[in-house]
């Protein structure tokens, strides 16, 4: 098999897969928020949206933010640890 045949097969498979996913999703339309029974804080789409969203984030998702700070710290320390200078670099 040459490259063009392989590419053709791959394209056909991908197309079939996309069509199958499409049919599956159209058959089972996504029941968005059908099971949502809890209260939530809607924000109107306006120019204030970003300010509102960031206020929400600081007020209510602060635990995630602080945890994320430590993830950043861990990644920084990790990069330092991997890129640290070592005496003999050969295997």
């Amino acid at each position: 098999m040459n490259k063009i045949e392989i590419a053709g097969i791959i394209i056909v498979v991908v197309a079939v897969a996309i069509i199958l996913i499409f049919i599956f999703i159209l058959e089972n339309s996504f029941p968005a928020f059908t099971f949502a029974k809890n209260a939530w804080k809607p924000v109107e789409i306006s120019e204030q949206l970003s300010a509102e969203a960031s206020r929400f984030m600081w007020n209510y998702r602060s635990l995630d933010l602080i945890a994320q700070v430590f993830v950043l710290f861990g990644a920084a320390v990790g990069c330092l640890a991997i890129l640290r200078a070592e005496k003999e670099e050969n295997e």
């Binding site: 996504f30 029941p31 968005a32 099971f35 939530w40």
Partner: peptide, 11 residues
């Protein structure tokens, strides 16, 4: 999240 609108365990 799309189904329930929340990710909290209690809800």
């Amino acid at each position: 999240y799309g189904l329930t609108g929340t990710l909290k365990f209690v809800q």
